[in-house]
Simulated assay, not measured.
Amino acid sequence: MAEEPPVLAVVGPTGSGKSDLAVQLAHRLGGEVINTDSMQFYRGMDIGTAKLSVAEREGVPHHLLDILDVTEEASVAGFQASARKTIEEIRSRGNVPILAGGSGLYVRAALDVLEFPGTDPRVRARLEDELASQGRAPLLRRLEAVDPVSAARLGDDRRIIRALEVYELTGRPFSSFMPEREYLQPALQLGLAVDRADLHERLALRVRRMEQAGLLDEVARLEPLGLRRGKTASRALGYRQFLEVLDGKADVETAVQQTIVATRQFARRQLTWFRADRRIHWLDWQDPELLPKALAAVRAAAAGRLMK
């Protein structure tokens, strides 16, 4: 390829084939893959996160996999620094950085002009205590008063606490740290467009295969290592549900069904996130010409015809 390819990112919902396409692109372009799935950061969380095995990586270097213990909390700001350093190292070797994963904020952290405010453990702990004693409603009302944009957008306790923490520390609404989308350097996002009914079937089958491959045993191995204490890891799809099996609160089939439902809901949220980014170049996930079309998009982006 005459022109230098941009930084690539393969995005889309869970189960759409991002990891496989990234490996294929790496073979054709001389690329190295950077993980942008926040749950694949964790050592030992292999089956439930659909992490590619060493054999499935087909000799392609993969970065930012297995970098955290299950008790550690993933940090978008920390990931941003690591990802950008890794991108530069890959470039220095004359190779193409290829991000792969469905954690949308982590993709933006790597690619976009984006600032992440700091944290204060004392403020965070106080807000968590308030949540535990008073529930979500008072915190959400406080957030609505200072940052109505975030209050309307954030739907879980962790993010509400984070938004309030940021406001206390900076005096700025959390939403002000998510500006218009602007790439830090030339980049191309390849999105895998799915048929929702087909994806639902694939996700159900994938969860059942995870169970058959030993997901319950994986959870049992991780539990004494602190899986329950991990603020991020314990929230991973399948792991919370199969901890209930270990506790005798659910049987395996119930855990499977709950995981299928949760995974489908997660895929829907991912699609909503990525569809809001008009820069993504969408490709049909089931197109037999997927790889040639992806390579054509890379060539066009390198020539400046797809950059936005």
Rank of each mutant, 00 (worst) to 15 (best):
A83G: 02
A110F: 05
R122C: 00
E89C: 00
V33R: 14
I47Y: 06
G44W: 07
L131A: 04
D37S: 12
D69W: 10
E88T: 11
S75V: 10
R28P: 04
I87N: 02
A74Y: 13
F116E: 03
G59P: 05
L64H: 12
Y42G: 04
D46W: 04
Y106I: 06
E72W: 09
L127Q: 07
V113R: 15
E72V: 12
D129Q: 15
P61C: 11
R91T: 00
A74S: 15
G94V: 10
G102R: 11
R126Y: 01
R43P: 00
R108S: 14
N95L: 15
A83T: 07
L68G: 05
V107G: 05
L111F: 04
E56R: 13
K85Y: 00
S103V: 12
A109K: 07
S82W: 02
G104R: 09
L25R: 06
E58P: 03
G102F: 13
T49C: 01
V113L: 13
V123A: 08
V33I: 15
T49R: 00
R124I: 05
V113N: 13
V33P: 06
Y106G: 04
E32C: 06
I47V: 15
I90G: 03
L64K: 06
V123C: 01
V33F: 11
A81D: 10
R43K: 15
E72K: 11
A74W: 06
P61D: 12
M45F: 05
R108F: 10
E88R: 15
M39T: 07
V33Y: 10
E115V: 14
F79I: 07
F79R: 01
Y106V: 12
E115L: 08
F116C: 01
E58V: 01
R126H: 10
R108I: 07
G118N: 05
D46N: 08
A26W: 12
A100Q: 11
N95Y: 07
S53W: 02
T119W: 02
G30A: 10
A77L: 13
G48K: 02
A74D: 06
A55N: 01
E72M: 08
S92K: 13
A125Q: 11
T119H: 14
H27M: 06
E32R: 10
P121E: 04
E56G: 09
N35M: 10
E89R: 14
G30W: 07
V96D: 10
V123F: 00
P61V: 12
D69P: 01
V107M: 09
E88V: 07
K85V: 01
I34S: 10
A77G: 08
D46A: 11
L68A: 05
K51F: 02
A83R: 00
A50K: 05
L131F: 14
K51I: 01
Y42L: 07
G31P: 12
V113C: 09
E56Y: 03
V113I: 13
E89M: 07
F79Q: 02
G48A: 04
F41G: 00
N95K: 15
S38C: 12
S103W: 09
L52E: 00
P121T: 01
V33W: 12
Y106N: 06
A83F: 02
D69S: 14
E58F: 07
